[in-house]
Each structure stands twice: as structure tokens, then as C-alpha cells.
Amino acid sequence: MKIITVLKFTVCLTIASFSLASDADISNGQVLPELACRYEMHIVPQDKSQTEIHKTWYFWRTANSVQTQDADGGHGEIWQRSTTGNIQYRKLYHNDKTAVEYMPADNASNNISFDWIKLSSMLSQQELDSLKYVKKSEIMGKRSELRTGKIDGQSLEVQWLVDEKLPASIIRKDGVRTVELRLLDIAPLLTTQYKPVSVADIGNYRQIDATDFGDMENDPFVKKLMAVEGQHTH
């Protein structure tokens, strides 16, 4: 079940994102505040025969890293920005003390590039600008702006925390489902009770290049990861 869980987790994160990438600097060159957040994701399919999904997960941001973790602590992801501007991406399997790395050479082959602004703020400046400002408000004691609009045919409603450069909520609707992301807790990283696994500890995890899965057919971890655990449903 753990693997299915992490897949749903990944799916949730993907769904939470928006499809446009941007090189715009949402922080106008400012260093974004280091934060710890807890979000709830709720997916409601239009087809009532399909199951609703609820997920709670953590989000930690520093100047050069973004880390996530599902609520039970078993799985997460980490993106680290180097001094050269490259972004190292790893999936984290905390229960197995293992990190699966997606190497730059193969990300390039797959036309995958990471947008740091979007990773660290969940919306690019271009996406934010394409939404219409509606009104100011205050959420959890923080300055917020309600913005609405359509991106790629999906209607969006975003409560944007102006100083934190993060959404307090995103509601996206299309003909298939409604996806709602809502901030539950937010605190400075230094004072939060929800601490991420340290980069040093992750460095002590077993590191596997995802490319090597095909040649690790007898490795217990890879066997577990690659095993089909029942049919996938949407």
C-alpha cells in the first residue's frame, strides 16, 4: 500500500500544479522566506462513482531546497538548487532510507526541466499574472489576494499569500474533477514543530539512479517499488 500511497501523493502534487512554466522571478530577486507548511488536498471527481481523494502533506522551503512529505512520513520528494543553478531531484523513501535520483543526463533526454520559482511558490509569475485580481483579504493573519481566471481551460480560484509567496488555497475545476488545495498550517522553518528530514540524513540514505532499476531486478527495494500492487484506478 505504501507505493500506491506515494503514487497518489505524486499525482496530487502534479494536479496541484499548473501547466505553464515561466522563467519570471516571482520574488523579484528577493530571497523567499523559509517556511514549513501543511496542506490538505481534496479531489472530487465529477463522476460520483469514482472515489474522492483526501491527502495531507508537508511542504518545506529554504532558499535552495524544496522538500515535501506525505502525512505518514513514508514518502517525499526533494529538489535542491545548486550554485550552478541546476536542480537535483530525488524521490525519498524514508522507511527504506533510500533516495531515488533522477539524473540530469536523463532528465534532459526527457525534456524535463525544473522551474525553481514554480517549485518554491507553486505558481509561476506568469500564471499568477494571468489570473484577475478580485480583492484583498486576510487569511491566518496574513495578507492575501483573491485571484481568479482560467488557465488551459480550467477555472482557477487562488488565495495568494502576498508576503509568503505561496497559495493559501487553490481551487481548480474542469469537466472531470474539482481539485482543492488548502493551507492548514504555516510557520517559519526555524520554529516549526514539523521538521523535514535533514539534507545530511538524506545524504546517508542509500542512493539509487532511477535508470538502474532495469538492472536491479533482484534488489529487494526495487522489487518492492516496481511490483504491481493491484490495479490502478483513476
Binding site: 503514487l7 502534479t14 500544479s17 533522477y102 536523463d106 517549485l119 509561476s124 490495479q231 490502478h232
Partner: peptide, 22 residues
């Protein structure tokens, strides 16, 4: 080979490496 993921908030990928199927 290229999983059509959203840049940012989407997993990197060595091609298509699924762990479940219908």
C-alpha cells in the same frame, strides 16, 4: 519515453517507469 509532466511540482522521470497499471 517522455512522461508529459508539468514542469515544477512534477516528478522527474527516466522515461515512463510506472509502478501500477490498469
Amino acid at each position: 519515453f517522455t512522461t508529459p509532466v508539468t514542469p515544477g511540482w512534477a516528478s522527474g522521470s527516466e522515461g515512463h517507469t510506472p509502478t501500477s497499471y490498469s
